[in-house]
Design a protein around this nucleic acid. Structure first.
Length: 415
DNA sequence: TCTGGGGTCCTAGGACCC
DNA sequence: TCTGGGGTCCTAGGACCC
């Protein structure tokens, strides 16, 4: 039996949410009716466009381009810094509504969900009608529009929701693949990004249909298992299912572009400390331990390199992580000006596997206690409550990186 | 393209073991 | 060691998603 899958996607999510918020707080203009965009923030250096209005789109403004570029295309564009806390609230409200229509809803990202409608048909009737009613309900109750794609497969539902925007419902059932999906340029296929698209075009593949009809073995030779996967996608083959339970987090990381090029080792250490604070706080918040620590560096020439290390035992202690971070950095940094730094923790495990090693010093125990106290205070009074003395007068923010609380659902490239 | 920041997964090579 | 092959772990880098 075929399943019925919905993919629901908020139109220009960040911008819509900001617009709704402003209207609710007395603003007389709707951002969606102006040339406006969300992007950039206090650390101003080369911010990018995260979401844009339809009007801004008409000026040729694209998601991901620099603020400067956007301004050159439309000087009067209204730029608004992102407010992630608001987005979380809107995302939750959106998700709550969807949950009324099925017990099987997967949060795929802040602004996208998959919904398995198969067993809801008895209750809510025809899928297409249900989709329209969901769309209208979200619009009426929450004030923003969504696109809904319907199919028997997650991939096809996602492709359908991308068809024509905004405020639309589309289907791509298997018999419609040829007509609705194959004529699209190859770039539109899920998982075909800026590196793969030119390779495919080099093989004479211009549309999704071209890929679908291409020799499967030949594409495998060129692009290995990845090639096989996108060939399957082009043919509407996808056996993934809507997963309710959020998968356990695989890694936690924070990184930042510094507003000036850092050339001093001590200063780099300070930035790394601020990142380590955030990353390790999030790790403890998730009630997990890490076994692998990595540091990444992007230099003034935009080349990136990283260095990682597996720990002898798992930890969640800020100072243990920080010691490793500085050592890794010192080992890998070539001494050139630094533009961007990152700290990432992977190979996470739950605390149930942790046994205090006999080599752990009493010292460690005290540090971990200090972490717990700091977490509690910062949670209660804000992250600025406690600042390590090394940051005073440094001009560097003591804690940086986002996604502090609520750990919103992160997407994976897999369906 | 003067190019953010949060993720996931895959691949490839070298070390090491049997 | 003028030596084979398979498996696993570790590390670095690169692809993709939003």
């Amino acid at each position: 039996m075929d399943r019925i899958i919905f993919h629901i996607d908020v139109n220009s999510a960040y911008l819509s949410w900001e617009a709704v918020y402003r209207l609710q707080h007395g603003s007389l203009t709707d951002l969606r009716t102006l040339s406006s965009a969300i992007g950039g923030d206090e650390k101003s250096r080369h911010g990018i466009i995260l979401a844009k209005s339809e009007i801004a789109k008409k000026y040729g403004i694209k998601t991901g381009e620099s603020l400067r570029e956007a301004k050159s295309k439309c000087p009067e564009i209204m730029l608004i810094p992102p407010n992630y806390r608001l987005y979380m609230k809107c995302s939750n409200a959106f998700y709550e509504i969807l949950c009324e229509y099925s017990s099987l809803v997967q949060r795929y990202s802040v602004d996208e969900c998959f919904l398995d409608y198969t067993d809801s048909q008895a209750l809510y009737g025809d899928p297409l009608e249900a989709a329209y009613s969901i769309k209208e309900r979200v619009k009426k109750e929450l004030g923003f529009t969504v696109n809904i794609g319907i199919s028997s497969k997650k991939l096809l539902a996602k492709m359908a929701s991308e068809l024509e925007k905004p405020d639309k419902v589309h289907t791509i059932f298997e018999h419609e693949i040829k007509e609705k999906m194959w004529p699209l340029p190859i770039e539109e296929l899920f998982m075909v990004g800026r590196r793969t698209a030119p390779k495919l075009r080099g093989l004479g593949i211009k549309t999704i249909g071209d890929l679908a009809k291409y020799d499967r073995e030949l594409i495998r030779i060129h692009l290995k298992s990845f090639g096989e996967m996108i060939w399957n996608y082009a043919n509407g083959i996808d056996s993934s299912t809507v997963k309710k339970e959020e998968s356990i987090q695989k890694g936690i990381g924070n990184s930042t572009t510094i507003s000036y090029d850092v050339t001093d080792r001590k200063e780099a250490h300070l930035v790394l400390l601020s990142l380590t604070e955030m990353v390790s706080m999030r790790l403890r918040e998730a009630d997990m331990l890490t076994k692998v620590i990595s540091v990444s560096v992007k230099n003034f020439g935009f080349s990136t390199y990283s260095h990682q290390r597996k720990l002898p035992g798992p930890t969640d202690c800020t100072m243990v992580i920080y010691e490793n971070v500085t050592q890794l950095f010192d080992q890998v940094w070539k001494g050139e000006p630094i533009r961007h730094l990152g700290v990432h923790l992977t190979d996470l495990c739950g605390k149930e596997f942790y046994q205090i090693s006999i080599f752990d010093k009493n010292d460690r125990e005290r540090q971990m206690q200090a972490d717990r106290v700091m977490d509690a205070l910062r949670k209660k009074y804000g992250n600025d409550t406690l600042v390590r003395s090394s940051f005073i007068n440094s001009g560097i923010r003591p804690i940086r990186g986002g996604v502090g609380e609520d750990n919103y659902q992160m997407m994976s490239s897999l369906l």
